[in-house]
Computed example of a mutant assay.
Amino acid sequence: MQQQGRLLFSEAPAPYLLLNAQGLIQDINFAGASLLGRNREVLLGKHFGQFLASTSQRSFDHLLSQASQQGLSYRSEMQLLHLDGTEFEVLLDLNAEKPAGELQRFRLIVTDITAYKAAYTHLLNDTESHQRQLQAQSSRIRELNQELEHVVTVFIQQLHLPLTRAMNFLGRTRRALGNASDEVKPPLLNTEQAVQQVIALMASIERYMRVRSMRIRLRTVNLNSVLSEIRKNAQPLLAERQIQITSDVLPTVQGDPQALYLILDEYVANALKFTKEKNPARIHILVREGESEYHIGVEDNGTGFHMRQRNQLFGRLHSSKAYEGTGVGLVTVRRSAQRFGGRVWAEGKVNQGATFWLAWPKSPVLRE
């Protein structure tokens, strides 16, 4: 049995050493001698620390001291020396044998981890390189976004004046023609509508860009005051149509007044747009309070939509030949709500109206 155990020790694939209490090599297997690059007879009686790099010798002595005092297994990475003096990385597993509370010897397993350390170092270098690349790409993307925002802003500003002049010219021409023939007036009206659509598109994009760069902060906002301001600004549109706008008592919430105005204003404008054929048009603002959020809905009796189209919402559903609009406004609504942890959705039936909902958290958390 003892001979079999001796054979297993000698032939073990892992470098295996037995050290006495002072750290001298009492026994070593073939794998251990091969790792140290010396004959077994030369190694016996030598202190294992002398085969370590100078930077690891003190650490090894400390490891021996800990193991002898505590009688536990310890693991540590150190550097061994080749015969030519070059260093290589090893992992030491040291176990103190104390059968009767008195240190008898140490069992030491040595694992060459040079390849592992090289791979680990390579991985770290690759990771650092990728992080630098990502940082550079992020910086470049920020620069491109800023450049794009600047270009779009300048483009919109530059278009305002010629479009306004075009609208004035078309209006004056139409009025100057008076009772012109049917061959003349329709093209003028169509051209005027086309220019109005471009102006509306520019306004939507301008609002979207403003939301992207909006500096928001949380404060107390009375939604009744927000709705009152929206109705005041919509008076020119309301004066030309029969529209009933009613509302539940709206809550006071935590949020940004600009963002909340933008969302509700877009919802009301959307309701006005899709009730153009209704007389009278009815718009009602609903409130439902949940445990953690308020649900604010803008309900109308307009054209509605089929619920199969609900995944297409917050983009334009109707042909621009029938209704003006671009869908950019609802995209802006979604983005604005999400920055506070809010949600948006809609419900509707064809020719029976729609309700566009905003779920606003009672304790919003700002998100970029």
Rank of each mutant, 00 (worst) to 15 (best):
T303M: 09
I216T: 11
L7Q: 11
S320E: 01
H62S: 15
V226Q: 02
W345D: 06
T55H: 15
N20L: 03
A203D: 15
L123A: 14
F274V: 02
E192T: 03
V331C: 08
Q137P: 05
L64K: 02
L91G: 05
Q235W: 05
V110P: 01
A21M: 04
E299W: 09
E229H: 04
L17M: 06
L262I: 03
W345T: 02
A239K: 08
N222A: 12
P257I: 02
I216G: 09
F48T: 01
L80R: 02
R207A: 15
V253W: 13
S139A: 13
L188Y: 00
R142M: 08
A259R: 13
L43G: 03
E289M: 11
G315H: 07
L81S: 06
S225R: 03
Q57I: 03
R207G: 14
G37V: 12
N179A: 14
G49M: 06
T86F: 10
A136H: 13
N20I: 05
R58E: 12
A194L: 00
Q70R: 13
L44M: 14
A337N: 13
Q79Y: 07
V287G: 04
K321D: 10
G71T: 02
R282V: 15
T246S: 03
L189M: 05
R310N: 05
V151R: 12
A119F: 00
H122Y: 12
F169L: 09
A118E: 07
Q196V: 01
Q157I: 06
Q70D: 12
Q258E: 06
G325E: 01
R231H: 10
A322D: 09
F305P: 04
P187F: 05
W360K: 07
V198K: 06
Q133C: 15
G5P: 13
V344S: 01
P187A: 00
L223T: 02
G71V: 03
R75P: 06
S54K: 09
E102S: 13
I141R: 07
L80A: 05
P186A: 02
N190M: 04
P162R: 02
G45T: 07
P162T: 08
R75C: 09
P186D: 06
A119Q: 05
N125C: 09
I216R: 12
T252R: 08
A67K: 01
E291Y: 13
N224T: 04
L8P: 06
R38Y: 08
G315I: 07
E324S: 04
G327T: 02
T355V: 07
V42D: 14
G49D: 00
L19N: 01
K117F: 02
K98M: 04
E87C: 09
R335S: 11
L108T: 00
Q254M: 10
L17C: 10
Y16E: 14
S68C: 05
K185A: 06
Q158W: 12
G255D: 14
Q57K: 10
G171Q: 00
A21S: 10
G304W: 08
R343A: 15
H284N: 03
L201D: 11
D126M: 15
N125M: 08
